[in-house]
């Protein structure tokens, strides 16, 4: 087992491992990776959202499709297209993020931020109205 990483980078992706103490019902789906979206954190948490490979779920506009060309993997495996489930954003226990999966491009991260902003109902006044 790898030791927990000390530093997280915004845009990196991790496998979220099951609680080592929990031997019941903790089998994780092997295809779910989490994208670090926060730039700041406190305590034991870091804010992330899941990148699902079930791209057919991108039926709502704020669920952002991330093409495989915008994803890199640390183990050299071929990335697959994914969808950023922006409405599943949550605080994750850093100690469960033991294995880095890779990263998404800056462009993909910015696209995901747009999805989050839209989901949250952020309003951008027209420049004229600024």
């Amino acid at each position: 087992m790898q030791s927990p990483p000390q530093l997280f980078r915004q845009g990196d992706t991790y496998w979220c491992e099951p609680d080592p103490q929990d031997t019941v019902g903790s089998e994780q789906k092997g295809d779910r990776i989490w994208l670090i979206v926060s730039l700041r954190s406190r305590g034991n948490g870091v804010v992330a959202l899941p990148l699902s490979r079930h791209v057919e779920k991108a039926t709502l506009p704020f669920l952002i499709t991330v093409p495989s060309t915008e994803i890199t993997t640390v183990d050299g495996t071929q990335p697959v297209d994914r969808v950023a489930l922006t409405d599943q954003i949550r605080n994750l226990d850093k100690s469960r993020l033991r294995k880095k999966s890779g990263a998404v491009s800056r462009r993909a991260l910015l696209a995901i931020f747009a999805g989050i902003d839209y989901m949250l109902g952020r309003h951008f006044p027209h420049p004229k109205a600024k």
Binding site: L7, F8, R9, Q10, G11, I36, S38, L39, R40, S41, R42, V46, R106
Partner: peptide, 9 residues
């Protein structure tokens, strides 16, 4: 300032 290592406060 939106890029980089996550700052732990």
């Amino acid at each position: 300032s939106q890029e980089g290592t996550v700052e732990v406060h």
